[in-house]
């Protein structure tokens, strides 16, 4: 039993020694992926300006497939931002269900809290509000449920924003 305890202590020491969570330096693959994301946003803008929202949607969907370096926080942030824009575009084109899928996939695959995640929750709330508005006339109960979902999403967004803001303030001090 003593031997087991000793081994555990050694392993903990080892973990402590190895716990050097160094972030990788900025790299060419990261810059290339960020440049691609930026280009797709510009492309989407041009298509929207030309009155071709479907082409803008295509551009943003291609952005979602940009291969960011694994674990790069910038990549996660850029993809969340693209999802928020794409969802709003789908909603504006009368496709609330597609917009919901785009948002939910982003929320489900992102454990790290950020302003971008809070923004996506905010868009999620907007989608629920829009859905409630369309349900008001046909199904008041469902409309109320959607409004409750919207409230939850907006509150989540506010909480995340507050936590991130607090953390950034603490880091600055």
């Amino acid at each position: 039993m003593n031997r087991a305890r000793l081994a555990v202590v050694f392993l903990l020491m080892l973990a402590a020694c190895g716990d050097r969570t160094e972030r990788p330096p900025l790299s060419q693959p990261l810059l290339a992926a960020l440049a691609q994301a930026r280009s797709y946003h510009h492309l989407a803008d041009l298509h929207l300006a030309n009155g071709a929202p479907e082409r803008a949607v295509e551009a943003l969907e291609r952005l979602l497939a940009v291969p960011f370096p694994a674990g790069a926080p910038e990549g996660e942030d850029a993809l969340l931002d693209a999802r928020a824009r794409l969802a709003k575009l789908h909603l504006a084109q009368g496709r609330p269900d597609v917009a919901r899928r785009v948002v939910d996939e982003g929320l489900a695959g992102t454990p790290r809290e950020s302003f971008f995640l809070a923004n996506l929750y905010s868009v999620s709330g907007e989608l629920a509000e829009a859905r409630a508005h369309t349900l008001d006339a046909v199904d008041p109960d469902a409309a109320r449920a959607e409004r409750r979902a919207a409230i939850v999403a907006h509150e989540r967004s506010i909480q995340i924003n507050e936590r991130i803001q607090r953390r950034l303030t603490e880091e600055r001090q």
Binding site: H41, E74, N161, L168
Partner: peptide
């Protein structure tokens, strides 16, 4: 010089700027 979250650079995203991802992408890049 390291890869890191963009929160400090971009700041809190206001509801009115929710879809203004192009400007944020420019800034981040």
């Amino acid at each position: 010089l390291v890869s890191r979250p963009a929160d400090r650079l971009v700041g809190r995203i206001a509801a009115a700027d929710s879809a203004a991802a192009r400007a944020r992408a420019d800034l981040l890049y």
